[in-house]
Design a protein around this nucleic acid. Sequence first.
DNA 1: TCAGGTCGTTTAATCGTGTAAATAGATAAC
DNA 2: GTTATCTATTTACACGATTAAACGACCTGA
Lengths: 326, 326
Amino acid sequence: MGKEKSPTIKDVARIAGVSSATVSYVLNDLNKVTPEVDALVRRVAEELGYSRNNAARALKTGRNNIIGCILPTLTSPVFPEIAQAVQLRAEAHGYATLVIDSGNAPMREERVVRTLAKHGVDGAVALLHPKFKLANPPIFPMVSLDAKFPGLDSVHADHYAGGRLMAEHAIALGHRRVGMLSGFQDLTSSYERRQGFVDAAAGRVELVWEVNVQLVPQLPPEAVAAIRRREVTMIACVNDLVAIAALSVLKDSGMSVPGDVSVFGFDDMQWASWPLIDLTTIRQPLADLGSRATDLLIARLGNRDLPTEDVVLPVTLVERGSTSRI
Amino acid sequence: MGKEKSPTIKDVARIAGVSSATVSYVLNDLNKVTPEVDALVRRVAEELGYSRNNAARALKTGRNNIIGCILPTLTSPVFPEIAQAVQLRAEAHGYATLVIDSGNAPMREERVVRTLAKHGVDGAVALLHPKFKLANPPIFPMVSLDAKFPGLDSVHADHYAGGRLMAEHAIALGHRRVGMLSGFQDLTSSYERRQGFVDAAAGRVELVWEVNVQLVPQLPPEAVAAIRRREVTMIACVNDLVAIAALSVLKDSGMSVPGDVSVFGFDDMQWASWPLIDLTTIRQPLADLGSRATDLLIARLGNRDLPTEDVVLPVTLVERGSTSRI
DNA sequence: TCAGGTCGTTTAATCGTGTAAATAGATAAC
DNA sequence: GTTATCTATTTACACGATTAAACGACCTGA
């Protein structure tokens, strides 16, 4: 039971009777060697259970084959789905993923970026606060999730179209008086969702009240009060988490859903389909978001001079039990 | 705007007028240099914005300062809380965390371990399926989460005590006829939760029916049928996710909670406290689990010859609205 | 005075790869 | 038959850090 050092490229070379350079060429698919040597080297490498030392490769090439994935938090119903997709996709490209949660504070985001840099990520997929200040020059390439970001590639769902879809569905169901729990408007996605709704609703639906709320499952007193005034037949929410908070208040107040009031969410997070919740919502393709962002990032790692690209993914209406015709 | 190479230890050495070895000693806190030189080197490093090249360090030392965190899935209410804690703790120790989801299949777990090895993690915190086969010799140290694992350090909640707590609370509330949705018994935590309950219930509570279910929020037909037979005053569930599925079935069947039947969960996942759900449950300290496991792992990385250690964390009863006195 | 000890610093080797440049061997050109 | 051209392979160095060993300056005690 000796000190089993894991085999190096030199061990492979020695046993195969070639030089280490040849082995390197083979293992990097550089097509520089004859088929016989190629096969021989691969066989020997396989037999020895050789696996490349990433640290050495990183040192030489300056690339670590690691990307970062910065999300506001992991304890949320939506972000882990994105993280999962990023990871899967990155793995397919031969990259590992450092998932890291920023706590949704722009200040902490900047620290997180430095942390990632310290650990040598080649780039990152990030859901950033709009106030985030991009370092200049950028430490590593990033792809912005969920919103355009000046100077970065981005991938996001069509929040504006989603807002319109909500309004149109509300109209189709006969709702004329709607209350809105919108997110704070400094967040691009919250802004666009609201704007889409308002534009499509104009002249056809009255926005009886509106409260800006945090994207968490607890509502501020004004929101609770507004709901309890019973002035509307539908409550349109900036996302599913907020919608669930609204459902809670309604239940507490003895109002039935969708009998007394319909509730509309946004995101289609995993739990929206649970029978206890059963929320009508606008679905954004979370996994696609992650995969596309990862592809974009990897493409950019290959060529930093590409023009920045903004990918917009379509959203869809998912009708469940929390809404009904008036 | 030239090619700004980030400064190396040699740059620092040159500018500070010392050798690179000295810089290395200073930056690794090895207390080998005079205070003046120490201060000088630190100042120069700071001014240059020097940051150590991890790849080079890893190559030389064989340690990457990265740990893995293997979890069955990220899209679950409980695991991300663990991941978050692991990450935070690892960061405090100067380690980055590669969170990776194994899809809960023992086969995939083995692949995941190889993936982590390929990316050079120094060790991992892992929630493993009991059938997982540990490589021999182990590729890197691991700490088992949620259950003891032969040959590994472990950290887990006291599932058995939790089971007893459930039974005792049921008894205190006057319940005598209980149905149980238990998990499959090959999973240690599911087994112990059930065993604790059964032991404490013996002679005082009748287990009217029991169905083994997957740990997901959908129930198999037998379970639905059992619930609809209305033979019990309480349903004890292997975890909160299953409890929520039970709540759904009860709602569908027109039974009120806790009026007609009480429901008891296990885990105290984040959403158990939402007013819509409001689940009485046994709380396991998820964040502590993650932190303790990380500490254990880091300790082991420092000294591989330590005897393996099993840490058991206490659970607590969290009483909410889904249970009541009969 | 000089052998021996301390202490702070430097020298130099090393980790495992990637890759530019050198080389050898075969083929083609004339 | 000599030279030029190409191709497959090897040589040799660099990447940026760590660290054992060497070193020189200073101190100490007989």
